[in-house]
Design a protein around this nucleic acid. Sequence first.
DNA 1: CTGCCTCTCATTGTCAACAATCTTGCGCTG
DNA 2: CAGCGCAAGATTGTTGACAATGAGAGGCAG
Lengths: 224, 224
Amino acid sequence: MADDMPKQDLSSEGIAAALRGRILSGGYGLGQRLIEMDLAEEFGVGRGRVREAFRMLTGEGYLEFVANRGVLVRRYSRVELIEMGRVREVLEGLAARLAAERTLTDVQRQELEAAQARMDAAEVAGDLDAFGMENRAYHRLIEELSGNVHASEFITRVRIPLIRVQMPWEEVAESVGRSNRGHRVITAAILAGAPEAAEVAMRTHVRDGNAHVARLPDEVFEAR
Amino acid sequence: MADDMPKQDLSSEGIAAALRGRILSGGYGLGQRLIEMDLAEEFGVGRGRVREAFRMLTGEGYLEFVANRGVLVRRYSRVELIEMGRVREVLEGLAARLAAERTLTDVQRQELEAAQARMDAAEVAGDLDAFGMENRAYHRLIEELSGNVHASEFITRVRIPLIRVQMPWEEVAESVGRSNRGHRVITAAILAGAPEAAEVAMRTHVRDGNAHVARLPDEVFEAR
DNA sequence: CTGCCTCTCATTGTCAACAATCTTGCGCTG
DNA sequence: CAGCGCAAGATTGTTGACAATGAGAGGCAG
Protein backbone atom coordinates (compact mmCIF):
# COMPACT_ATOMS: atom_id res chain seq x y z
CA MET A 1 0.00 0.00 0.00
CA ALA A 2 1.06 3.54 -0.67
CA ASP A 3 -1.09 4.91 2.11
CA ASP A 4 1.63 5.31 4.67
CA MET A 5 3.47 7.61 2.30
CA PRO A 6 3.27 11.24 3.41
CA LYS A 7 0.58 11.97 0.83
CA GLN A 8 2.74 13.14 -2.02
CA ASP A 9 2.55 16.74 -3.20
CA LEU A 10 1.10 16.58 -6.68
CA SER A 11 1.71 20.15 -7.80
CA SER A 12 4.17 20.64 -10.64
CA GLU A 13 6.79 21.50 -8.04
CA GLY A 14 6.02 18.36 -6.10
CA ILE A 15 6.33 16.21 -9.17
CA ALA A 16 9.55 17.97 -10.11
CA ALA A 17 10.89 17.25 -6.63
CA ALA A 18 9.95 13.59 -6.90
CA LEU A 19 11.65 13.25 -10.27
CA ARG A 20 14.70 15.16 -9.07
CA GLY A 21 14.97 12.70 -6.22
CA ARG A 22 14.78 9.76 -8.56
CA ILE A 23 17.50 11.19 -10.75
CA LEU A 24 19.77 11.97 -7.82
CA SER A 25 19.24 8.58 -6.25
CA GLY A 26 19.97 6.85 -9.51
CA GLY A 27 16.44 5.57 -9.96
CA TYR A 28 16.66 6.84 -13.51
CA GLY A 29 19.78 6.17 -15.52
CA LEU A 30 21.67 8.81 -17.44
CA GLY A 31 20.18 9.27 -20.88
CA GLN A 32 16.97 7.51 -19.91
CA ARG A 33 13.93 8.85 -21.70
CA LEU A 34 10.95 9.89 -19.59
CA ILE A 35 7.49 9.44 -21.03
CA GLU A 36 4.96 12.11 -20.13
CA MET A 37 1.98 9.82 -20.29
CA ASP A 38 3.48 7.14 -18.08
CA LEU A 39 4.34 9.61 -15.35
CA ALA A 40 1.01 11.39 -15.65
CA GLU A 41 -0.69 8.07 -15.09
CA GLU A 42 1.62 7.08 -12.28
CA PHE A 43 0.99 10.30 -10.36
CA GLY A 44 -2.64 10.40 -11.40
CA VAL A 45 -2.49 13.86 -12.96
CA GLY A 46 -2.75 15.40 -16.40
CA ARG A 47 0.18 15.52 -18.79
CA GLY A 48 0.41 19.27 -18.51
CA ARG A 49 1.63 19.12 -14.96
CA VAL A 50 4.28 16.56 -15.83
CA ARG A 51 5.41 18.72 -18.72
CA GLU A 52 5.82 21.72 -16.44
CA ALA A 53 7.85 19.64 -14.03
CA PHE A 54 10.02 18.59 -16.99
CA ARG A 55 10.58 22.20 -17.94
CA MET A 56 11.68 23.14 -14.42
CA LEU A 57 14.13 20.29 -14.30
CA THR A 58 15.42 21.24 -17.73
CA GLY A 59 16.09 24.74 -16.45
CA GLU A 60 17.90 23.27 -13.46
CA GLY A 61 20.06 21.12 -15.67
CA TYR A 62 18.74 17.70 -14.69
CA LEU A 63 16.92 16.94 -17.91
CA GLU A 64 17.62 17.45 -21.58
CA PHE A 65 14.86 18.50 -23.95
CA VAL A 66 14.80 17.13 -27.47
CA ALA A 67 12.18 18.62 -29.75
CA ASN A 68 9.39 16.17 -30.54
CA ARG A 69 11.20 13.49 -28.57
CA GLY A 70 10.52 14.74 -25.07
CA VAL A 71 13.02 14.67 -22.25
CA LEU A 72 15.80 12.41 -21.11
CA VAL A 73 18.01 12.42 -18.06
CA ARG A 74 20.83 14.68 -19.09
CA ARG A 75 23.99 12.91 -20.16
CA TYR A 76 27.47 14.27 -19.82
CA SER A 77 30.37 13.51 -22.09
CA ARG A 78 33.84 12.83 -20.74
CA VAL A 79 34.87 16.38 -21.58
CA GLU A 80 31.86 17.81 -19.76
CA LEU A 81 32.54 15.61 -16.79
CA ILE A 82 36.08 16.90 -16.60
CA GLU A 83 34.95 20.50 -17.02
CA MET A 84 32.37 20.15 -14.28
CA GLY A 85 34.97 18.44 -12.16
CA ARG A 86 37.01 21.61 -12.14
CA VAL A 87 33.98 23.62 -11.15
CA ARG A 88 33.28 21.14 -8.39
CA GLU A 89 36.82 21.54 -7.20
CA VAL A 90 36.47 25.24 -6.48
CA LEU A 91 32.91 24.99 -5.19
CA GLU A 92 33.67 22.29 -2.68
CA GLY A 93 36.80 24.21 -1.79
CA LEU A 94 34.60 27.20 -1.09
CA ALA A 95 32.27 25.15 1.09
CA ALA A 96 35.21 23.94 3.17
CA ARG A 97 36.51 27.49 3.46
CA LEU A 98 33.14 28.81 4.57
CA ALA A 99 32.72 26.02 7.11
CA ALA A 100 36.11 26.92 8.56
CA GLU A 101 35.25 30.63 8.60
CA ARG A 102 32.13 30.13 10.65
CA THR A 103 32.00 29.61 14.34
CA LEU A 104 30.53 26.14 14.56
CA THR A 105 28.33 25.03 17.42
CA ASP A 106 29.43 22.15 19.60
CA VAL A 107 26.81 19.95 18.00
CA GLN A 108 28.13 20.76 14.54
CA ARG A 109 31.71 20.04 15.57
CA GLN A 110 30.62 16.70 16.98
CA GLU A 111 28.74 15.87 13.80
CA LEU A 112 31.85 16.54 11.77
CA GLU A 113 34.00 14.43 14.06
CA ALA A 114 31.42 11.65 14.00
CA ALA A 115 31.33 11.68 10.20
CA GLN A 116 35.10 11.47 10.11
CA ALA A 117 35.07 8.63 12.62
CA ARG A 118 32.58 6.65 10.54
CA MET A 119 34.81 6.99 7.49
CA ASP A 120 37.83 5.92 9.51
CA ALA A 121 35.95 2.88 10.75
CA ALA A 122 34.92 1.92 7.24
CA GLU A 123 38.49 2.37 6.05
CA VAL A 124 39.86 0.13 8.80
CA ALA A 125 37.16 -2.45 8.17
CA GLY A 126 37.93 -2.32 4.46
CA ASP A 127 34.22 -1.86 3.73
CA LEU A 128 34.26 -0.02 0.43
CA ASP A 129 30.50 0.40 0.15
CA ALA A 130 30.27 1.89 3.61
CA PHE A 131 33.21 4.14 2.89
CA GLY A 132 31.56 5.42 -0.29
CA MET A 133 28.35 6.15 1.54
CA GLU A 134 30.05 7.87 4.44
CA ASN A 135 32.20 9.81 2.01
CA ARG A 136 29.13 11.25 0.35
CA ALA A 137 27.59 12.06 3.71
CA TYR A 138 30.79 13.80 4.76
CA HIS A 139 30.83 16.06 1.71
CA ARG A 140 27.17 16.89 2.16
CA LEU A 141 27.79 17.73 5.79
CA ILE A 142 30.51 20.19 4.86
CA GLU A 143 28.19 21.86 2.39
CA GLU A 144 25.67 22.19 5.15
CA LEU A 145 28.24 23.52 7.60
CA SER A 146 29.20 26.14 5.03
CA GLY A 147 25.86 27.79 5.72
CA ASN A 148 25.63 28.86 2.09
CA VAL A 149 22.60 27.27 0.48
CA HIS A 150 23.45 28.62 -2.94
CA ALA A 151 26.89 27.07 -2.89
CA SER A 152 25.20 23.85 -1.80
CA GLU A 153 22.78 23.97 -4.67
CA PHE A 154 25.47 24.49 -7.25
CA ILE A 155 27.54 21.68 -5.79
CA THR A 156 24.58 19.34 -6.02
CA ARG A 157 24.18 20.26 -9.67
CA VAL A 158 27.80 19.89 -10.51
CA ARG A 159 27.77 16.47 -8.95
CA ILE A 160 25.01 15.15 -11.18
CA PRO A 161 27.33 13.65 -13.80
CA LEU A 162 28.86 11.52 -11.08
CA ILE A 163 25.62 9.79 -10.21
CA ARG A 164 25.91 6.15 -11.05
CA VAL A 165 29.51 6.52 -12.16
CA GLN A 166 31.05 3.44 -10.69
CA MET A 167 34.78 3.26 -10.26
CA PRO A 168 36.60 -0.01 -10.91
CA TRP A 169 36.76 -1.92 -7.69
CA GLU A 170 40.53 -2.23 -7.29
CA GLU A 171 41.04 1.44 -8.02
CA VAL A 172 38.65 2.41 -5.26
CA ALA A 173 40.30 0.02 -2.82
CA GLU A 174 43.65 1.48 -3.66
CA SER A 175 42.57 5.11 -3.27
CA VAL A 176 40.67 4.86 0.00
CA GLY A 177 43.72 5.48 2.15
CA ARG A 178 44.82 8.54 0.25
CA SER A 179 41.25 9.85 0.07
CA ASN A 180 40.64 9.52 3.77
CA ARG A 181 43.98 11.09 4.58
CA GLY A 182 42.66 14.09 2.65
CA HIS A 183 39.49 14.03 4.71
CA ARG A 184 41.42 14.12 7.94
CA VAL A 185 43.34 17.20 6.82
CA ILE A 186 40.11 18.93 5.84
CA THR A 187 38.37 18.00 9.06
CA ALA A 188 41.27 19.27 11.13
CA ALA A 189 41.43 22.55 9.21
CA ILE A 190 37.71 23.20 9.62
CA LEU A 191 37.78 22.39 13.32
CA ALA A 192 40.83 24.61 13.72
CA GLY A 193 39.06 27.48 11.96
CA ALA A 194 41.67 27.64 9.20
CA PRO A 195 39.79 28.68 6.03
CA GLU A 196 42.78 28.85 3.71
CA ALA A 197 44.05 25.42 4.73
CA ALA A 198 40.56 23.92 4.54
CA GLU A 199 40.02 25.25 1.02
CA VAL A 200 43.39 24.13 -0.25
CA ALA A 201 42.98 20.67 1.26
CA MET A 202 39.50 20.24 -0.18
CA ARG A 203 40.56 21.37 -3.62
CA THR A 204 43.43 18.95 -3.63
CA HIS A 205 41.16 16.19 -2.41
CA VAL A 206 38.52 16.80 -5.08
CA ARG A 207 41.14 17.11 -7.76
CA ASP A 208 42.51 13.71 -6.80
CA GLY A 209 39.05 12.23 -7.19
CA ASN A 210 38.59 13.89 -10.56
CA ALA A 211 41.83 12.41 -11.81
CA HIS A 212 40.37 8.96 -11.23
CA VAL A 213 37.16 9.90 -13.00
CA ALA A 214 39.07 11.21 -16.01
CA ARG A 215 40.62 7.79 -16.45
CA LEU A 216 37.30 5.96 -16.72
CA PRO A 217 36.72 3.86 -19.82
CA ASP A 218 34.57 5.22 -22.63
CA GLU A 219 31.64 2.91 -22.00
CA VAL A 220 30.71 4.87 -18.90
CA PHE A 221 29.84 7.89 -20.99
CA GLU A 222 27.71 6.35 -23.66
CA ALA A 223 25.56 4.56 -21.10
CA ARG A 224 22.24 4.47 -22.82
CA MET B 1 7.04 47.41 -38.07
CA ALA B 2 8.21 44.18 -36.57
CA ASP B 3 8.63 42.53 -39.94
CA ASP B 4 12.36 42.98 -40.15
CA MET B 5 12.74 41.06 -36.92
CA PRO B 6 14.20 37.58 -37.51
CA LYS B 7 10.79 35.93 -37.30
CA GLN B 8 10.69 35.12 -33.61
CA ASP B 9 10.84 31.52 -32.45
CA LEU B 10 7.55 30.80 -30.77
CA SER B 11 8.36 27.49 -29.12
CA SER B 12 8.45 27.44 -25.34
CA GLU B 13 12.21 27.76 -25.58
CA GLY B 14 11.93 30.72 -27.90
CA ILE B 15 9.53 32.47 -25.59
CA ALA B 16 11.75 31.69 -22.63
CA ALA B 17 14.69 33.18 -24.50
CA ALA B 18 12.72 36.33 -25.30
CA LEU B 19 11.67 36.77 -21.69
CA ARG B 20 15.19 36.05 -20.45
CA GLY B 21 16.43 38.79 -22.72
CA ARG B 22 13.91 41.25 -21.37
CA ILE B 23 14.88 40.46 -17.80
CA LEU B 24 18.59 40.75 -18.54
CA SER B 25 18.18 43.99 -20.42
CA GLY B 26 16.06 45.45 -17.67
CA GLY B 27 12.86 45.52 -19.67
CA TYR B 28 11.19 43.96 -16.66
CA GLY B 29 11.90 45.27 -13.18
CA LEU B 30 12.75 43.11 -10.18
CA GLY B 31 9.64 41.76 -8.53
CA GLN B 32 7.49 42.61 -11.51
CA ARG B 33 4.62 40.24 -12.00
CA LEU B 34 4.19 38.62 -15.39
CA ILE B 35 0.69 37.79 -16.58
CA GLU B 36 0.31 34.59 -18.59
CA MET B 37 -2.61 35.81 -20.62
CA ASP B 38 -0.99 39.08 -21.64
CA LEU B 39 2.13 37.33 -22.89
CA ALA B 40 0.16 34.59 -24.60
CA GLU B 41 -1.73 37.26 -26.50
CA GLU B 42 1.40 39.25 -27.26
CA PHE B 43 3.17 36.24 -28.74
CA GLY B 44 0.00 34.90 -30.27
CA VAL B 45 0.19 31.49 -28.60
CA GLY B 46 -1.73 29.54 -25.98
CA ARG B 47 -1.15 30.06 -22.28
CA GLY B 48 0.38 26.62 -21.92
CA ARG B 49 3.45 27.57 -23.85
CA VAL B 50 3.95 30.69 -21.81
CA ARG B 51 3.57 28.67 -18.63
CA GLU B 52 6.24 26.26 -19.77
CA ALA B 53 8.57 29.13 -20.55
CA PHE B 54 7.88 30.44 -17.04
CA ARG B 55 8.81 27.09 -15.56
CA MET B 56 12.10 26.96 -17.40
CA LEU B 57 13.03 30.43 -16.25
CA THR B 58 12.05 29.53 -12.71
CA GLY B 59 14.46 26.62 -12.85
CA GLU B 60 17.17 28.91 -14.14
CA GLY B 61 16.64 31.36 -11.31
CA TYR B 62 15.22 34.26 -13.28
CA LEU B 63 11.64 33.98 -12.08
CA GLU B 64 9.94 33.23 -8.82
CA PHE B 65 6.78 31.14 -8.65
CA VAL B 66 4.07 31.99 -6.17
CA ALA B 67 1.23 29.49 -5.98
CA ASN B 68 -2.00 30.85 -7.42
CA ARG B 69 -0.34 34.18 -8.04
CA GLY B 70 1.86 33.27 -10.99
CA VAL B 71 5.42 34.41 -11.52
CA LEU B 72 7.44 37.50 -10.85
CA VAL B 73 10.96 38.51 -11.72
CA ARG B 74 12.94 36.92 -8.92
CA ARG B 75 14.21 39.12 -6.18
CA TYR B 76 17.25 38.26 -4.12
CA SER B 77 17.63 39.30 -0.52
CA ARG B 78 20.80 40.93 0.73
CA VAL B 79 21.88 37.66 2.32
CA GLU B 80 21.34 35.74 -0.90
CA LEU B 81 23.23 38.34 -2.85
CA ILE B 82 26.17 38.03 -0.48
CA GLU B 83 26.07 34.24 -0.55
CA MET B 84 26.00 34.15 -4.31
CA GLY B 85 28.73 36.74 -4.36
CA ARG B 86 31.07 34.31 -2.66
CA VAL B 87 30.22 31.64 -5.18
CA ARG B 88 30.85 34.11 -7.95
CA GLU B 89 34.20 34.87 -6.42
CA VAL B 90 35.52 31.34 -6.77
CA LEU B 91 33.87 30.71 -10.12
CA GLU B 92 35.28 33.79 -11.77
CA GLY B 93 38.58 32.96 -10.13
CA LEU B 94 38.40 29.57 -11.77
CA ALA B 95 37.66 31.10 -15.16
CA ALA B 96 40.71 33.33 -14.87
CA ARG B 97 42.84 30.36 -13.83
CA LEU B 98 41.64 28.27 -16.74
CA ALA B 99 42.22 31.10 -19.20
CA ALA B 100 45.79 31.38 -17.92
CA GLU B 101 46.29 27.62 -18.11
CA ARG B 102 45.36 27.44 -21.75
CA THR B 103 47.59 28.33 -24.62
CA LEU B 104 45.72 31.22 -26.15
CA THR B 105 45.78 31.99 -29.84
CA ASP B 106 47.15 35.29 -31.04
CA VAL B 107 43.64 36.44 -31.85
CA GLN B 108 42.49 35.65 -28.33
CA ARG B 109 45.43 37.47 -26.80
CA GLN B 110 44.65 40.50 -28.93
CA GLU B 111 40.99 40.39 -27.91
CA LEU B 112 41.98 40.40 -24.28
CA GLU B 113 44.38 43.28 -24.77
CA ALA B 114 41.76 45.20 -26.73
CA ALA B 115 39.16 44.68 -23.99
CA GLN B 116 41.66 45.94 -21.44
CA ALA B 117 42.48 48.94 -23.64
CA ARG B 118 38.80 49.86 -23.96
CA MET B 119 38.41 49.83 -20.18
CA ASP B 120 41.53 51.93 -19.79
CA ALA B 121 40.18 54.44 -22.30
CA ALA B 122 36.84 54.65 -20.50
CA GLU B 123 38.66 55.11 -17.20
CA VAL B 124 40.79 57.96 -18.57
CA ALA B 125 37.76 59.56 -20.18
CA GLY B 126 35.85 59.24 -16.91
CA ASP B 127 32.95 57.66 -18.78
CA LEU B 128 31.33 55.49 -16.12
CA ASP B 129 28.66 54.00 -18.37
CA ALA B 130 31.23 52.94 -20.92
CA PHE B 131 33.43 51.52 -18.18
CA GLY B 132 30.54 49.49 -16.78
CA MET B 133 29.76 48.09 -20.19
CA GLU B 134 33.36 47.25 -21.02
CA ASN B 135 33.78 45.76 -17.58
CA ARG B 136 30.96 43.31 -18.22
CA ALA B 137 32.37 42.51 -21.66
CA TYR B 138 35.79 41.88 -20.10
CA HIS B 139 34.44 39.40 -17.59
CA ARG B 140 32.46 37.61 -20.26
CA LEU B 141 35.55 37.42 -22.43
CA ILE B 142 37.51 35.75 -19.66
CA GLU B 143 34.74 33.20 -19.19
CA GLU B 144 34.97 32.49 -22.88
CA LEU B 145 38.74 32.24 -22.82
CA SER B 146 38.46 29.74 -19.99
CA GLY B 147 37.08 27.29 -22.53
CA ASN B 148 34.84 25.80 -19.86
CA VAL B 149 31.22 26.29 -20.86
CA HIS B 150 29.93 24.86 -17.60
CA ALA B 151 31.87 27.33 -15.52
CA SER B 152 30.47 29.99 -17.83
CA GLU B 153 26.95 28.81 -17.32
CA PHE B 154 27.22 28.80 -13.56
CA ILE B 155 28.77 32.24 -13.57
CA THR B 156 25.88 33.55 -15.62
CA ARG B 157 23.45 32.21 -13.07
CA VAL B 158 25.28 33.47 -10.10
CA ARG B 159 25.31 36.89 -11.69
CA ILE B 160 21.55 37.09 -12.04
CA PRO B 161 20.98 38.90 -8.74
CA LEU B 162 23.24 41.67 -9.96
CA ILE B 163 21.03 42.52 -12.90
CA ARG B 164 19.74 46.02 -12.46
CA VAL B 165 21.60 46.53 -9.21
CA GLN B 166 22.75 50.07 -9.62
CA MET B 167 25.56 51.35 -7.46
CA PRO B 168 25.46 54.90 -6.14
CA TRP B 169 27.15 57.13 -8.64
CA GLU B 170 29.93 58.52 -6.49
CA GLU B 171 30.86 55.10 -5.20
CA VAL B 172 31.32 53.82 -8.72
CA ALA B 173 33.38 56.84 -9.71
CA GLU B 174 35.55 56.31 -6.71
CA SER B 175 36.11 52.59 -7.31
CA VAL B 176 36.89 52.67 -11.02
CA GLY B 177 40.58 53.20 -10.50
CA ARG B 178 40.96 50.36 -8.04
CA SER B 179 38.75 48.09 -10.13
CA ASN B 180 40.69 48.66 -13.31
CA ARG B 181 43.98 48.22 -11.51
CA GLY B 182 42.66 44.77 -10.63
CA HIS B 183 41.82 44.15 -14.27
CA ARG B 184 45.33 44.98 -15.35
CA VAL B 185 46.80 42.49 -12.91
CA ILE B 186 44.41 39.79 -14.14
CA THR B 187 45.09 40.57 -17.79
CA ALA B 188 48.83 40.43 -17.24
CA ALA B 189 48.62 37.13 -15.35
CA ILE B 190 46.52 35.50 -18.05
CA LEU B 191 48.80 36.71 -20.83
CA ALA B 192 51.81 35.54 -18.86
CA GLY B 193 50.24 32.10 -18.41
CA ALA B 194 50.26 32.36 -14.61
CA PRO B 195 47.16 30.46 -13.41
CA GLU B 196 47.71 30.89 -9.70
CA ALA B 197 48.28 34.64 -9.99
CA ALA B 198 45.31 35.03 -12.32
CA GLU B 199 42.98 33.22 -9.95
CA VAL B 200 44.13 35.10 -6.88
CA ALA B 201 43.86 38.44 -8.66
CA MET B 202 40.37 37.69 -9.97
CA ARG B 203 39.14 36.52 -6.59
CA THR B 204 40.41 39.65 -4.93
CA HIS B 205 38.86 41.75 -7.65
CA VAL B 206 35.44 40.13 -7.38
CA ARG B 207 35.56 40.25 -3.61
CA ASP B 208 36.16 43.99 -3.77
CA GLY B 209 33.10 44.39 -5.95
CA ASN B 210 31.02 42.28 -3.60
CA ALA B 211 32.03 44.44 -0.68
CA HIS B 212 30.42 47.39 -2.43
CA VAL B 213 27.29 45.40 -3.14
CA ALA B 214 27.01 44.36 0.49
CA ARG B 215 26.85 48.00 1.50
CA LEU B 216 23.86 48.81 -0.70
CA PRO B 217 20.86 50.39 1.03
CA ASP B 218 17.86 48.23 1.88
CA GLU B 219 15.61 49.75 -0.75
CA VAL B 220 17.53 47.98 -3.48
CA PHE B 221 16.31 44.63 -2.23
CA GLU B 222 12.64 45.38 -1.86
CA ALA B 223 12.42 47.21 -5.16
CA ARG B 224 9.50 45.85 -7.02
C1' DC C 1 -15.38 57.15 10.19
C1' DT C 2 -13.46 52.56 10.69
C1' DG C 3 -13.36 47.79 10.43
C1' DC C 4 -15.12 43.60 8.74
C1' DC C 5 -17.60 40.73 5.69
C1' DT C 6 -19.14 39.30 1.27
C1' DC C 7 -19.34 39.29 -3.51
C1' DT C 8 -17.20 39.86 -7.86
C1' DC C 9 -13.69 39.62 -11.14
C1' DA C 10 -9.09 38.89 -12.71
C1' DT C 11 -5.93 35.34 -12.92
C1' DT C 12 -3.97 30.96 -12.29
C1' DG C 13 -4.60 25.65 -12.16
C1' DT C 14 -6.03 21.65 -14.64
C1' DC C 15 -7.51 18.66 -18.00
C1' DA C 16 -8.96 16.20 -22.10
C1' DA C 17 -9.21 16.39 -26.99
C1' DC C 18 -7.05 17.08 -31.28
C1' DA C 19 -2.96 18.02 -34.40
C1' DA C 20 1.77 17.33 -35.63
C1' DT C 21 5.71 14.60 -35.56
C1' DC C 22 8.77 10.79 -35.13
C1' DT C 23 9.78 5.78 -34.98
C1' DT C 24 9.31 1.34 -36.55
C1' DG C 25 7.94 -2.59 -38.90
C1' DC C 26 6.30 -4.33 -43.17
C1' DG C 27 6.14 -5.22 -47.87
C1' DC C 28 7.52 -4.11 -52.36
C1' DT C 29 11.08 -3.73 -55.83
C1' DG C 30 15.45 -4.25 -57.98
C1' DC D 1 18.73 -10.43 -50.06
C1' DA D 2 19.32 -5.43 -49.55
C1' DG D 3 17.32 -1.04 -49.83
C1' DC D 4 13.60 1.95 -50.22
C1' DG D 5 9.24 3.80 -49.31
C1' DC D 6 4.86 3.69 -46.89
C1' DA D 7 1.64 3.10 -43.37
C1' DA D 8 0.46 2.44 -38.54
C1' DG D 9 1.31 3.31 -33.85
C1' DA D 10 3.28 5.80 -30.19
C1' DT D 11 4.48 10.11 -28.31
C1' DT D 12 4.88 14.92 -28.07
C1' DG D 13 2.91 19.71 -29.17
C1' DT D 14 -0.88 22.86 -28.55
C1' DT D 15 -5.04 24.70 -27.50
C1' DG D 16 -9.52 26.11 -25.51
C1' DA D 17 -12.75 25.28 -21.93
C1' DC D 18 -13.82 24.90 -17.22
C1' DA D 19 -12.63 24.86 -12.13
C1' DA D 20 -10.28 26.88 -8.23
C1' DT D 21 -8.13 30.49 -6.01
C1' DG D 22 -7.10 35.03 -4.25
C1' DA D 23 -7.29 40.14 -4.27
C1' DG D 24 -9.88 44.09 -4.12
C1' DA D 25 -14.27 46.80 -4.19
C1' DG D 26 -18.28 47.91 -2.05
C1' DG D 27 -21.60 47.89 1.51
C1' DC D 28 -23.07 47.31 6.18
C1' DA D 29 -22.70 47.43 11.23
C1' DG D 30 -20.62 49.45 15.22
